[in-house]
Every structure is written in C-alpha cells, then in structure tokens.
C-alpha cells in the first residue's frame, strides 16, 4: 500500500505545527480532489492531516463590515447562505455553476482554493508534465490543449486553475486569511494563486507551514449588477472552457466601479485590473465592453486547439458585462441548471 499516516488536528496551531513536519504533508478536508489525485498516483502524501474538526466552519460578519467565510464551511452551505445570497450573489452563482450537489456538499471553501488543474497530462502518469514532475516537459503545448490556458502561460506549463468559486472571489476582491508559525497574515486574492513561470509545480504562494483559515469578502455592494457566465461542453458537471465573473456598480448608465475576472484561461483566476480601469466612469455600453474585452485578451496566446478561447473570452466578457448591466445574470434559460 501507499502508506501514509492519518491524524486529526483539533486546533489551528496544532495543524500548522504538524504541517511543518518532515515528509509530504497534506491537509485533507472534503477530499473531493485529493482522493482522486491519490488514486491516480498524482499525489502521494506520506502524512494526511484531517482538518475537519478545526473550528473554521462559520460564515459570519467580518470586522470591516464584510463577510468572513470559514475555510471549512462547505461550498453548498456557502452558496445557500442567506447573507451570501443577499450581499454576494455573484459568489453563490459561481459556486453553483461548479461540480455537482454531492461534491459541493463535501467540498470546503478552503479546499476549493487548492483544486489542482484538470490538464489531461497532469493526470496521466504515462505522459510528461512539468507540474507533476518538474523538468519532465509539457505535453500539452504540442499536444491536445483545447481546455488549457491562453493567458499568463509559460514555456513550462499552460495549465488552468479549475475553480469557479475562485473566479468570483477574485472579482469580489476577496482576501485570504492564513495562519503560519509566525502568526496570521492576509493575502490579496490575486496574490494567492500564481502563474506557472518555470516552477509550475507550485499552484499558489502559501508557505509550507501555513493554513488557510478564512476568506474575507469586503463590504462592497455588487449585489445588483453581476453575472457569472460559464461556458462549457455540457450544461452541468463540466469544467469551464471560459468563465467570466462580472460585477458593476452603476449610477444611471455610468459605471462607478467595475470588476472582471476569468476562469478557464490561466494558471490562476484571471483578474485584470487594467481592463477594470477601462470600465470606471464609462457608460455601460457595448462599445465600452468591447474595449475592455479587447484589453483582457491583449496578451493572449493560443496553442492550436485552444485558440478559439481568445475570441470566446472576448464574447463572454461582453455578454457577462451586458447581463450584469441589465441585472439579468443568467445567459439563457438552460444555463446553470445546477441548483
């Protein structure tokens, strides 16, 4: 057997302490991705620390008037939480666009941040993959890359981050609270995940001794004009080819504040603040949206099978912004049949 030790952490401090021990240590919460990866031999931890008993399941008011999502609150409890639905419906919609009810019942908010890429080659031990085995090469760049990245890619890796929830969190300018041996720190959401560069084995910037305890949503109101548009190969239970989280604050038809993040395009949830700046103070018109969409894909690079994503991303951005403006967050009658 692939031997590993299994222990339960009863307190955050103990979890942090255990995680800094030697060996390949992994936290397990819902396990919805980790178990798959272990069965496929992609991950082979020697120590599993079950963190489900840590007191991190609450969804409560944050000191600055925002909302604090406990790292161990489930995706389902978060999506259907009354405060989340009322104040951050973009987040509810994004969560419900992902996975299946069964998975969302198990998956936790913290765990969602740590989902690993769905790149075919990452999962197949018979093929080289720099993310799985650094230095072995990237099979996807010259291979079948239809579902893979177009932004922020590198010569080592074109993997995408698979989360829906994280795309909404990026657009909502969430922050991630982490605790390590040296105490607590707060990470801006766009700094939590990273681009592959030449070290694609690292998905994020969390330090080895750290644990995510909560995700904070700021006290901003994007509850009226928002849209999470997810385009995929079937209506439910499929990862995004392109997803767009769009959120606007409007005064009349003028955009006071605009937010935009994309999923399915990069190694991290792709928030583009330069493009967001093109929304500010502008009329909520097709023309504005077109400029913004063009800006987002300015540096995009296609790899053959996935080149269509560049055009699709533009169209999806424009549609999501239009839907957000109109306060009609769903693209068509058949979309998001998931809830």
């Amino acid at each position: 057997m692939n031997s590993f030790t299994y222990t339960r952490a009863e307190a955050v401090e103990a979890a942090v302490r255990e995680k800094s021990a030697s060996g390949k240590v992994k936290f397990i919460a819902g396990g919805t991705n980790l178990l798959d990866l272990m069965k496929e031999n992609v991950e082979r931890p020697t120590r599993l620390i079950d963190i489900n008993r840590l007191p991190l399941t609450k969804i409560e008011a944050a000191p600055d008037g925002g909302l604090r999502l406990g790292a161990l609150a489930t995706n389902a409890d978060t999506a259907w939480n009354a405060e989340v639905e009322k104040r951050y419906p973009l987040l509810s919609q994004a969560i419900l666009a992902g996975a299946s009810p069964q998975l969302r019942n198990m998956a936790t908010n913290g765990g969602n941040l740590f989902q690993r890429t769905r790149c075919y080659y990452f999962y197949d031990l018979a093929t080289p993959c720099n993310k799985r085995e650094p230095g072995s090469g990237c099979s996807a760049i010259g291979g079948y890359n239809r579902i893979l990245g177009i932004l922020g890619t590198s010569e080592s890796c074109i993997a995408t981050h698979p989360s829906d929830m994280c795309v909404a969190l990026a657009a909502l300018a969430a922050t991630v609270r982490v605790t390590g041996k040296n105490g607590e720190r707060v990470v801006k959401f766009e700094d939590f995940h990273r681009l592959p560069g030449d070290t694609p084995q690292f998905d994020n910037t969390l330090q080895p001794d750290e644990i995510v305890t909560a995700i904070d949503l700021p006290a901003e109101d994007f509850s009226r004009h928002f849209s999470y548009l997810k385009l995929r190969d079937r209506t439910s239970y499929a990862f995004a080819l392109i997803s767009v989280a769009a959120a606007l604050q409007l005064e009349g038809n003028t955009i006071k504040e605009g937010r935009l993040a994309l999923g399915g395009v990069a190694h991290k949830p792709w928030r583009d603040t330069t493009a967001e700046a093109l929304l500010k103070g502008q009329p909520a018109t097709e023309e504005t949206f077109r400029r913004v969409a063009a800006k987002v894909v300015e540096g995009a690079k296609g790899y053959g099978h996935n080149t269509f994503k560049i055009e699709l991303a533009k169209r999806a951005i424009m549609r999501a912004l239009k839907q957000a403006t109109e306060g009609m967050p769903v693209a068509d009658a058949f979309q998001n049949s998931n809830p």
Binding site: R118, Y120, Y121, A126, T127, R234, T235, S236, N338
Partner: peptide, 20 residues
C-alpha cells in the same frame, strides 16, 4: 505524440447530464 487517448476518463470524456 504518445499514440494514446488523452481524455480517457469520465471527467473529460463527456456524455450528457440531465440538464442537457
């Protein structure tokens, strides 16, 4: 490159779900 099917699992070989 490998003479191998790449999407050889249920996650990436799609069949319809009820919503389709």
């Amino acid at each position: 490159q490998f003479g191998r099917y790449v999407n050889h699992n249920y996650a990436e070989y799609h069949i319809p779900v009820c919503a389709d």
